[in-house]
Deep mutational scan, measured.
Amino acid sequence: MATGGRRGAAAAPLLVAVAALLLGAAGHLYPGEVCPGMDIRNNLTRLHELENCSVIEGHLQILLMFKTRPEDFRDLSFPKLIMITDYLLLFRVYGLESLKDLFPNLTVIRGSRLFFNYALVIFEMVHLKELGLYNLMNITRGSVRIEKNNELCYLATIDWSRILDSVEDNYIVLNKDDNEECGDICPGTAKGKTNCPATVINGQFVERCWTHSHCQKVCPTICKSHGCTAEGLCCHSECLGNCSQPDDPTKCVACRNFYLDGRCVETCPPPYYHFQDWRCVNFSFCQDLHHKCKNSRRQGCHQYVIHNNKCIPECPSGYTMNSSNLLCTPCLGPCPKVCHLLEGEKTIDSVTSAQELRGCTVINGSLIINIRGGNNLAAELEANLGLIEEISGYLKIRRSYALVSLSFFRKLRLIRGETLEIGNYSFYALDNQNLRQLWDWSKHNLTITQGKLFFHYNPKLCLSEIHKMEEVSGTKGRQERNDIALKTNGDQASCENELLKFSYIRTSFDKI
């Protein structure tokens, strides 16, 4: 039985969820670079991206490699990797027998973001014989899940209580170790020597080791999670996991709180800001991140802002960003909400898709409305799209047979046209069989910064309504002859009103 693990408890099935942008060198404390989270699957090609990484700022997932063999891993080693800020997950990587050479110096898994409450997941690794993470000293947050690894031993010899604050939620089941077939031998045991430290858990006094050649490092209890030197002297209180010299914040392997210019500090002093819960960055760093993602459509890219001495992905609820200094300031009234469309555009074809934009005031991208039916549609669209004030790209209304009016965009005031449909149009209306009105132009103002209007096959939309939009939106004169079809717009509506004058002759039985 794995020490510190839980057996036999019912657990939810383990679901495996399925960018080499360097964020800056980590400095003297770390020998390499800070790398983003990685999802490495199918083959070993991307694994080489770990070569210079000291910190993975995010998670590391290595999974679904069915053609790899043990010899493929023999020359692979990433000794610079010290810390993973989120979680480490391995799933069905064939041929991998140990992690001792792959990650010989991995010391800390912070667990800032977890995989279903777990910071370390080893699942269905069919050839893994031992973990071998002999320098792993601290899992700051989260638990361990090690399950269905039929060859995995050296679990009962690990004292997880020396690595985690609590072992109650560890789930370590259905491994070879369960069948008591392992016969784990710690260093020196074969020669009758006791080389590794022994600890007591559940009444068992057991030597602690990761492999037959690597003991588990056990520091004096007084050192807590700070770690200790090879001689057993406690590291500085700002260290986490390990250090090369005692009581020196510049000799830590990793930091308990924050890293700044080669030393570990309790908090980031001005003019620095907390970033990702582990390091200090200056304003320029946060500003660069903001600008890199301002026009990016890459998933996970955030326009970072500053709030409460932190550089964070977005302002919290009730705050909006001051564009001059990136500071989050309290909103006066309802907060603006910028919604970034991942692929640059979004099609609204149902109430469900409209709900995804609920509360958005600025759309960074283009909207395509293609709704053919739905219950209580006008009210639903207004509830979900009615706060949109600005669209950076274009607005396209296409084959939306259920629409009679666009009044559900009740606050839309600006279409920038930074991206144009077919390279020309910022407003595009095609084949809307029941569209009769755009907006009530006596109450609604709309500016279209650039781009043209396109109207074709809107049989109940009168040309007068379209011409009014040209005047109000500032697009009059931009359109070419064929942009607004004269014969297919309003051709099934009563669009022309003329005053009919009647004269009559009164007659009676005795007068003409």
Rank of each mutant, 00 (worst) to 15 (best):
L29P: 14
Y30K: 02
P31K: 07
G32D: 10
E33R: 15
V34R: 10
V34F: 08
C35R: 02
P36I: 09
P36G: 14
M38H: 13
D39E: 04
D39V: 00
I40T: 01
R41Q: 01
R41P: 00
N42R: 00
T45L: 12
T45A: 15
R46Y: 04
H48N: 15
E49M: 12
E49Y: 15
E49H: 14
L50G: 01
S54L: 08
G58S: 00
L60V: 05
L60S: 00
I62P: 01
L63N: 02
M65V: 05
M65L: 09
M65Y: 03
R69A: 04
R69L: 03
P70W: 11
R74H: 14
D75S: 12
D75I: 04
K80D: 04
K80G: 12
M83V: 08
M83F: 05
I84M: 01
D86I: 05
D86P: 00
Y87G: 00
L88R: 01
L90G: 01
F91Y: 00
L96K: 02
L96R: 00
E97Q: 13
S98Q: 02
L99V: 07
L99K: 01
K100C: 10
K100N: 14
F103W: 06
F103R: 01
P104Y: 00
N105L: 01
L106C: 02
L106R: 02
T107E: 07
V108W: 10
I109G: 00
I109M: 05
R110D: 00
S112E: 00
S112T: 10
R113P: 04
F116A: 00
N117F: 03
L120S: 02
L120Y: 01
V121S: 01
I122V: 09
V126A: 01
L128I: 09
L128F: 10
L128T: 03
K129D: 02
K129H: 12
K129C: 08
L131P: 00
L133P: 00
L136T: 02
L136Y: 00
M137Q: 12
I139W: 00
I139Y: 02
R141T: 00
R141C: 00
I146L: 11
E147Q: 07
N149K: 01
N149E: 00
N149I: 01
Y154T: 03
L155K: 03
L155C: 05
A156T: 06
D159W: 15
S161W: 10
R162W: 12
L164H: 09
V167M: 00
D169T: 14
D169Y: 05
D169N: 11
N170Q: 05
L174C: 12
L174P: 09
N175A: 04
D178T: 09
N179V: 07
N179P: 07
E181A: 09
C182R: 00
C182G: 02
G183W: 15
G183T: 11
G183N: 05
D184V: 14
D184K: 15
I185L: 12
G188T: 09
G188Q: 08
T189C: 06
A190W: 14
A190F: 11
K191L: 11
K191S: 13
G192P: 06
G192H: 07
T194C: 07
N195R: 07
C196R: 07
A198V: 07
T199C: 12
T199F: 08
V200Y: 05
I201E: 08
N202D: 09
E207K: 05
R208S: 05
C209Q: 00
W210E: 05
W210R: 02
H212N: 13
S213M: 11
Q216C: 04
K217H: 08
V218C: 14
S225W: 14
H226D: 11
H226V: 14
G227A: 04
G227P: 06
T229K: 04
A230L: 03
H236Y: 03
E238H: 10
L240G: 11
G241Q: 02
G241Y: 01
Q245M: 07
Q245F: 09
P246I: 14
D247H: 15
D248L: 06
D248Y: 00
P249L: 06
P249T: 11
C252I: 01
C255E: 00
C255T: 00
R256L: 09
F258R: 04
R263S: 12
V265T: 11
T267L: 06
P269M: 02
P269Y: 05
P270M: 13
Y272P: 08
Y273S: 07
H274N: 15
H274G: 15
F275L: 02
F275S: 03
D277W: 07
W278Y: 12
W278D: 00
N282R: 15
F283L: 12
S284M: 10
Q287E: 13
Q287P: 13
D288P: 02
H290V: 08
H290L: 09
H290P: 04
K292W: 05
C293D: 03
S296V: 07
S296Q: 14
S296L: 07
R298T: 11
Q299K: 15
Q299L: 13
Q299S: 05
G300Q: 05
Q303G: 10
Q303N: 11
V305P: 02
I306S: 06
H307G: 04
N308G: 05
N308F: 11
N308C: 02
K310M: 08
C311R: 04
P316C: 00
S317H: 03
S317I: 01
G318V: 01
Y319H: 04
Y319A: 07
T320Y: 07
T320V: 10
N322Q: 07
N322W: 02
S323P: 09
N325I: 05
L326S: 07
G333L: 14
G333Y: 15
P334F: 08
C335L: 02
C335W: 09
P336C: 02
